[in-house]
Amino acid sequence: MSAVDLIQSLEIDALKGIDRYVNEGKKVIGISAPGVVPEEIIHAAGMVPVTIWGAKGEVGPSKEYFPAFYASVILRTMDLGLEGKLDKLSGMVITNLSDGLKGFSQNWKRAIDVPMLYIPYGQNRKIEAGIEFNEKQFLHLKDALEEIAGEKIADEKIEEAIVLYNEHRKAMLEFNELAAKHLNTVTPLLRNRVFASAYVYAKDEHLEKVKEINEALRAMPEEEFKGKKIVTTGIIANSEDILKIFEEFGFGIVDDNVLHESTQYETMAEEKTGKPVRALAEVFANIEGNTFVFDEKKLRGSIIADKVKKHGANGVVYLLTKFSDTDEFDFPIIRKDLQAAGIPMNMIEVDQQMVSFEQAKTALQAFADII
């Protein structure tokens, strides 16, 4: 199969993923804060983590639990829970990494029968006390997962899961590099499909699929791309309508600082330490460029600038999640850093309730003409 055929065959519907694994007799754990949850522990328990990124469409019953000015990815995830579409989950992991997620956790606990597995991260994460605190929170998660699984989770199993997840991280980063060399083939829509599919497969299964895609891309000659090369940043970049606009105006994505895409794969866990849960807490300590993770040095802007320079990109598109306090606080700092580096940037607000994209289309068309 060609690389395009392999990518198009990937499943990206979280609800279908949940159904498939439950039908296979496996327990599924939902995740609402990707990129920071120690999924390795879930995998070691013999369960499948599936990340829920809300759903496209108007906000429904969650209106009774949240104010209107809430990030729609949280509102729409709550909708899925209230509508019974997540009842097959054996648990739902929610963290405290934003004000929105904190409110979401309590509303979920109050209104939905699926057990809520809460991780109250310590954001002073790099000091020894912070690492020890977060290790304890992961151990609490381990205890809760053992209760759901009905058996103990051996450290050896977590060690094996760390090796698997590191291999998957490397494969995803390799795909990111190969996609940048084949921008005519790997369009923004297809590129995103690979990242989106990672949330609905068990990691060993998804790893084999990504390896096939990478092998197909390596077999192809590098492509000359005559469009505009961009780096994207934000929390989520899976709007099919926005990605189609990218393609319409000749944008090729050479790299990203997007939580939904490659950002979560850039920090490896140390293997074979004998203390696997602490190794996972150290991953959280070492993360950089993630809008949900406290960064006193404000490195996200320089990280994005380095990606632009590495790939010779023409500019940056900031996909700002509407009503996300963490992303909105980062925006002016990143804009200042990119301006200082002489890098053009265009900001587009994104929202899962969007039905009109004319404003975004006009802004992106103008940006394509400028860069």
Rank of each mutant, 00 (worst) to 15 (best):
L217K: 11
G103T: 10
Q365I: 00
V277L: 07
A366E: 12
A149K: 01
L141T: 06
P276F: 04
K56F: 10
T233A: 13
L101M: 14
D79H: 10
E128Y: 00
T51R: 12
V22Q: 04
L80C: 09
G130T: 04
E240S: 14
I348L: 12
I371Q: 05
K85N: 10
Q339A: 13
A219V: 09
S324N: 15
I29G: 03
A340V: 01
D369E: 15
S9M: 04
E271A: 06
V258D: 08
M172T: 05
K309Q: 12
T326A: 14
M116Q: 09
L217H: 10
R20H: 07
F249N: 11
D204C: 08
L189H: 08
M354S: 13
W108G: 01
A198G: 15
S62A: 15
G122D: 03
G84I: 11
L75H: 08
E282Y: 05
G315T: 00
L15N: 06
L319K: 08
K26V: 01
D87G: 03
F225I: 07
T77E: 13
F66C: 12
R20V: 04
V28S: 01
D99L: 04
S302H: 13
N176G: 04
K16A: 12
E212H: 11
I131S: 02
T291Y: 13
L319Y: 01
E215S: 15
E167D: 14
F292K: 02
V37T: 09
G81F: 10
L139R: 14
E146V: 09
N23M: 10
P276M: 05
W53R: 13
E167A: 14
G227A: 10
F133M: 07
I334H: 04
A279M: 03
V22Y: 01
G60D: 12
H206C: 11
A55G: 07
K309M: 04
I158A: 02
E128R: 08
D306E: 15
V186I: 15
I74C: 07
V37Q: 03
H140Y: 12
Q353Y: 03
D325S: 14
V93L: 08
V73R: 04
F329N: 11
D99W: 08
A55N: 11
K152T: 14
A161G: 05
L190C: 07
A45I: 00
G315Y: 09
S98A: 13
G289N: 10
K244Y: 03
G84D: 09
G25R: 06
G289V: 06
I348K: 01
N214H: 09
R278T: 00
D351V: 06
Y118F: 15
A313G: 04
I242V: 15
L117E: 03
I371W: 01
E147K: 13
A33H: 03
F104N: 05
T232S: 12
F292H: 06
N134V: 02
M92Y: 13
T273H: 00
S2E: 15
A363V: 08
